[in-house]
Each structure stands twice: as structure tokens, then as C-alpha cells.
Design a protein around this nucleic acid. Sequence first.
DNA 1: ACTTACATGTAACGAGTTACATGATTGC
DNA 2: GCAATCATGTAACTCGTTACATGTAAGT
Lengths: 187, 187
Amino acid sequence: MANSQTELAVLAVLSIRPTTGYAIRELVHERLSAFWSESFGQIYPALARLREAGLIEVTPGERTGSALHSLTDAGREHLLDMLSEPPVAARPRNGVLLRLFFGDLLGPRACAALVQAAKERSERQLADLAAARAEVEAERAADPADATRTRYWLLTIAAGEHAARAAIAWADEALAELADLEAGENR
Amino acid sequence: MANSQTELAVLAVLSIRPTTGYAIRELVHERLSAFWSESFGQIYPALARLREAGLIEVTPGERTGSALHSLTDAGREHLLDMLSEPPVAARPRNGVLLRLFFGDLLGPRACAALVQAAKERSERQLADLAAARAEVEAERAADPADATRTRYWLLTIAAGEHAARAAIAWADEALAELADLEAGENR
DNA sequence: ACTTACATGTAACGAGTTACATGATTGC
DNA sequence: GCAATCATGTAACTCGTTACATGTAAGT
């Protein structure tokens, strides 16, 4: 118990500061969405299990009555243990590439539309990451005590940027090749 | 029914040529592993459902008695319908980036080890893709009738190569930054 | 007063993995 | 004859999503 990926993520978020379940999901959505996701349906049961296991404790918030979850000493230790375990590889499932592999069934036009849509998603991703980068840098300027933490955050943003730029470069190549395939068909 | 991602993949593989469940999994492992995965526990139930729905039919193999699954007309049509639906986005879950985001908990040395390991995985991936590329090109030379199909296959290989190279470039940047963080700690 | 955001939970379902059980075929 | 590979399937389990149900707090 207290072993899942969700529990790892929840403990990690609580290491920043005690918060509500709702705010955990907020942070995951706003800061980690490029490489992580959680739903309420996972977070609340995870919080219950973690509390059960003595890894977190709950105190009612000062002004609001909402439940603030914070790490216990055991929780902090368990978090370090989990972080030290090798990351579990996500099972790959890329619907765009699956369709492209069987591309002669759909034909070059439909494939080009898929690739174009993927390219646009990556461009949006890149813009989002630029905004996130600006936010994090502003935060660093505002609170220099967080400087170390924000350097790690920027590493994850850079990873997203590299990936998005690669996806865009590939998409351009693929669109050229697909145009060529279509020209060949109509010859 | 006959709606899952697995069923799509199974139908798509059967569009190449009729085969056994075992061989479907082989092909997914050898050709699609960079962007797709299936397990026996999914494939056989999926085949049963597809047969039930009249989308595939089973004939005993000529020499071996093993079950050869082939698309029916309805199956071919359903496959085209499924391919035309927008791809479902995979939920992101990158354990390396999660650990890096909370990198000050692990410290720069442990983070560097994670990044280094990720880099090596990408390098292996790149080598595998180069091998796959050679194989596909050999196949194209051997059977020119497959030329169109292999061009689509090469598109998916190129996608993997772009992604892997981006991951390696990022890893090098990240390792430099982590070395700097470590130097800062020991100052 | 009303709407929007904050907040907590549960239940039903779907998807996928792993481990197990079983047996045929083929190469040595 | 024996090992490895090919082949098929099931059952238990884990993980995660979605939809639902419910209520509070804050802004306008």
C-alpha cells in the first residue's frame, strides 16, 4: 500500500507545502500537465490511504475549514524512498503514429491532416511552455529563496520544449513526404 | 463493443495479412514498439470480441492447425471508421520528469543519474530505430510492391528518431545544469 | 440572490498487466 | 527424447477515468 504513482505524486506535491486535495490537482494541472496527470477520482482515495498509513496528517485550514494535508516524518521518508526507486516506464500508445504506420489505409491526405493537427498541438504546447517559463522566472525573481527549486522546474520545461520542437520538425518533414506521396498517387 | 484501442490495433495488423494472435503480438513488438504496445491478455479477448461482432473470421492454417484471423468486409469497413476517428491522447506519465520537478528532494547527483539513464535509453532507442530503418529499406528493395507501405513505416521511424535525438540533446543540457547545481551546493 | 470557484467524496466502468495453465510443433 | 518456440486462453489484480452527488465560500 501507499505504493502507486499517484501516491508518489501526491506526497511530492505536499512536500512543497500543505494543501487541499483540490489544490493538489490544480498544481498538477498547471505545473506538471506536460508530463503528468491526475484526476480527483485518484487523488482523494490516495489521500485517504496515505492518511491511513500515517504518511500524511490532516489539519483544518485556519480561515477556511478545508482539509490541509501535510507530510508526517514517516511520509517524508517514504517519499524519498519512492523517489529513489527507478521510474516506471509508461506504456507507449501514440494513436497518430499507429494511424500513420497503417497510412496507406487512410491515404496521404487524411494522414497529412493528422500530422498537421499534431503539429498544431505541439505549437500550442510550445507556447504554453514559454508562458510557464516566464511565470517560473518571475516567481524566482520575486522569491530568491526558491531559486534552487525553480532551476529544477526549468529543467522539466526545457524537456517539454525540446520534445515539442522535435515534434514540429518531424511534422514538417512528414508533411513534405506525404505531399510527395499524394502527388505520386495522382500521377 | 469493438471499440477499444486494442481492437483498432488488432484490426489494423490483420489488414496487412491474416495471422495468429501470437504473430499479432510479434509484429506489434517488433515494428510498433516505439509507439505502441499490446499484451496477450488484451489481444486474445479482443480477437474473441471481434469474431463475435463479425469483424474477423477464423480459418485453420494450412500446415499448422493454428487459427488464422482475417478481416471480413465489415471488419475492413469498421477499421476505416476507427482510423478516421480522432486519435485518443495518451495520459502523460513521465516518472523521470516528475522526479526532476521535485529534484531538490533527491539532489543533483541522483537527478543526474536519472537523466543519464534516460539518455542511455534514448541512445539505445536510436540504435534500434537505425536497425529498423535498415530492415524496412531492405524489405522495400526485396518487394517493390510494398514501396508505398514502407514509406509510411519510415515516417513513424523518423518520428522516433526525432524524439530520441531531442531527448539526448535535452539530457546533455540538463546534465550540465545539474553539474552546475552540484558545484553550487559544494561551494 | 446568484453564479462561479472551491472542495470532497463515491460508484460504475473500462482498460491493461501479470501470472498461471495448457498444449502443439520443431529443431537438435 | 528434450528444449525452445509457437500458440491460446483465463483469472486476479491494479490503475485510472467519468459521472454523479453534495456542499461551502466568495464575489457581484
